[in-house]
Design a protein around this nucleic acid. Sequence first.
DNA 1: TTGCATTTGTACGTATGTATC
DNA 2: GGATACATACGTACAAATGCA
Lengths: 264, 264
Amino acid sequence: MTINPGAAEFPHRQIAAQLRARIHRGDWAPGERLPSIPSLATQFGVAKQTVQRTIDQLRIEGLLITRPGSGTFVRGTKRRMNRLSRGRYGAERGYHAELAARYRQHLMQVGAMPCPPDVAEAFGIDVGVHLLVRRHLVRTGDAPVEVGASWFRPADVRGTSIERPDVFDRPLYQEVEAETGRRYTSARDQVSARLPTREEAELLQIRPDTPVLVLLHIAYDAEHKPIEVAQAAWPGPMTSLTEEYKIPGVRPGLPTDEPDLALG
Amino acid sequence: MTINPGAAEFPHRQIAAQLRARIHRGDWAPGERLPSIPSLATQFGVAKQTVQRTIDQLRIEGLLITRPGSGTFVRGTKRRMNRLSRGRYGAERGYHAELAARYRQHLMQVGAMPCPPDVAEAFGIDVGVHLLVRRHLVRTGDAPVEVGASWFRPADVRGTSIERPDVFDRPLYQEVEAETGRRYTSARDQVSARLPTREEAELLQIRPDTPVLVLLHIAYDAEHKPIEVAQAAWPGPMTSLTEEYKIPGVRPGLPTDEPDLALG
DNA sequence: TTGCATTTGTACGTATGTATC
DNA sequence: GGATACATACGTACAAATGCA
């Protein structure tokens, strides 16, 4: 537990590296409490502020959870696996029926709300226009793991079960198809990382400076008009999205104009 | 430009919110310099350290770029769009031939290197085993936008063009298929957000505390043995990955056991 | 219930180092 | 070389939350 103040790396980075290594090595089990910040400061021979800065960084990285008045704790196992929303429809469309049983998915709100920029752009409307939104929170055991919202144009779902706070016994998209007669034909997924909104941070029980992984999912009907725009957010450092798929055989085709992933 | 020290929000958060709003409103154009930190401190009536803390946060969020001795600058708000690697093989397999022309993709290294944990797990080998790696860097104009690496088992590509530092006139996976006789049959993508390695941060010209969006791509042959494991990283807050696809019709199928995305 | 010690979180002033112009 | 600007560390002080006696 020593720090070299003259080294190229700043003390707070050296300490961060040491703590990271010890956490990965298992010196403290998930959920276990680290020594207090003043105690670490004397152990490392630095000022309290310097250790505080280290802790701030490791918290943003998602390794630590801090509770004022209580202590600093190692976050539980990294990596929850989720599928990208393509899996929502599945290679086998419809297998999601028992999803509610495996997760504790909680329908939080059904009603009209002004839409955020992402959703507005997807629908091609102005920001702040009121849409119908169904918001949910997913928990595993105690911990919240996903906050999500599905947005619809009010005219599209007026008088249907979608605008009522009902919990359905089939996936939402199947309910929408049955109630509106429009079929989910294609979709567009957009993944990015950003800081959470204040509300997202509260619901996910993370701090506002911990990044979240965000998926914007736009579902289109046969005329390529948006039926539903869904947003989902997970605690960033803890989550990874996975997807598996077949690679098609060689077929001639046209090049596209969009920027593309290089990968080799 | 005033701060309320008695409010519920801490001063450094209040200042962050104000600066965020002004940047989004366009008070400073992308690339433009903000007032110096001491100057902002006197304007807001707080200590220099408090503004410094605000700037640290906005830099991690990706809004600002700081250059010691020079100043604090607004990062371009442009979102670069990339496709998920499924697009690598395309609905039209093979259109990637002209990709190298559209981007300035630079082959940085071809040789043996000890593999990182992600790649080891994908191949089912131990961490640190030496694999053949082809690493590249993609630039648009001046700015680096993607660092990537493709990993192979040495035995799989021994004596082929893959282990030579050649630039091919077709996509890498086509070269591999032609040289090894194995066909890319299925793949698995895994997206997550994390802090960059030291090297990634240098190559992407971002700070080590700015998160990156990472894609791990595993390509399998007909026997579901990994042929290639590719990793790509982009500056997180600036990038979003998109994908479009058709939604299949209703077909009965078996439920799977994997945790899944809820989304409604 | 009250009171007190502990712990995290923030702010401030000062000092020093380093990079840029 | 000098001025400017960002980056870090240290010590002190105080606030808020927690836990325990």
